Computed example of a mutant assay.
Amino acid sequence: MRRAVCPGSFDPVTNGHLDIIVRASRLYDSVHVAVMINKAKKGLFDIDERIALIEQVTAELGNVRVEAFNGLLVDFCRQREIPAIVKGLRAVSDFDYELQMAQMNNGLSGVETLFVPTNPAYSFLSSSLVKEVAQWGGDISHLVPPQVLDALNEKLRQQ
């Protein structure tokens, strides 16, 4: 069975993230979406909310499993016998950082990294940008799945 992981913080998951996950699910038999726990960072959505949103928007794929992870991604991969990491690249600046991470991960464990160019429609998109635009009342309906839009609007109303 061909397995891969799509890691990230997904706070919140965007259409750009979803594009990469869907494309990975077409290439691999099983795709794990590893949702990073970063205790040093206070996210808008807690880990359980992020997992639930990703599960909702990937439910129809059938071969996607969503899990939290804390620590090194290579340990997550080793524990699950996952030989490949799939990462989306938006711009050259992403490549500089991601190449270093890919080389480190390969050196630590032999895990390969597959870089997938982002759909040009999402080349500017980040969770941080989505949150900022939403906080100022901008229309982000074309940038996130409907479930995420509803959850984000509700979360911002509570603040």
Rank of each mutant, 00 (worst) to 15 (best):
S141E: 15
G62K: 04
N119R: 04
D139N: 15
L108W: 13
V111Q: 04
K87A: 08
Q135E: 15
V130L: 02
T118K: 01
E132L: 09
E67G: 00
R90G: 02
D139W: 12
I140S: 07
E98W: 08
A151C: 05
P120F: 13
L129A: 13
A68F: 05
L114I: 15
D150V: 06
N63E: 08
N105V: 05
L108C: 06
S141Y: 06
D96P: 01
Y122C: 05
P145R: 03
Q103L: 15
R78S: 12
I82E: 06
L149I: 00
V86G: 02
P117V: 02
I85N: 04
Y97R: 14
R78T: 13
Q79A: 15
E81Q: 15
P145H: 05
V64K: 09
P117D: 02
L114P: 00
V116N: 03
A134S: 13
V74T: 15
F115A: 02
L149P: 06
I82H: 10
S127L: 07
V116G: 02
L89M: 12
V92I: 14
E81L: 11
G107T: 10
V148I: 02
Q135Y: 11
E60A: 10
L125K: 05
Q147H: 12
F95K: 00
L73A: 03
V64E: 02
M104T: 15
G88M: 06
T58A: 09
F76W: 11
C77E: 04
L129N: 01
R90K: 07
V111K: 04
V144Y: 01
M104L: 15
M104F: 13
V133R: 10
M101C: 11
L152T: 09
R65D: 09
A134L: 08
G110R: 09
D150F: 07
Q103E: 15
E60V: 00
G71W: 11
A91Q: 12
V130I: 14
A102E: 09
G88V: 03
A59Q: 14
E98I: 03
R78E: 15
S127T: 04
D75P: 00
L72Y: 10
E60Y: 08
K131A: 06
P145A: 13
D150N: 07
Q103S: 11
A91N: 14
Q147F: 08
S127Y: 06
E60T: 10
E112A: 13
R78W: 12
A102D: 10
L99V: 07
V111F: 03
T58K: 09
F124Q: 06
L89Y: 11
Y97T: 14
Q100F: 00
S93K: 14
D94A: 03
T58I: 05
C77T: 01
L61I: 05
L152G: 07
G62F: 09
K87Q: 13
Q79W: 06
T118A: 15
Y97H: 14
P83I: 04
S126E: 11
P145W: 03
G71N: 11
A121Y: 06
Q103W: 03
F95A: 13
L129P: 01
L99A: 10
F76M: 01
K131W: 01
S93P: 00
L73V: 03
V130C: 01
A68H: 06
A59I: 01
Q147I: 00
G138T: 04
L72D: 08
V92D: 08
E132P: 10
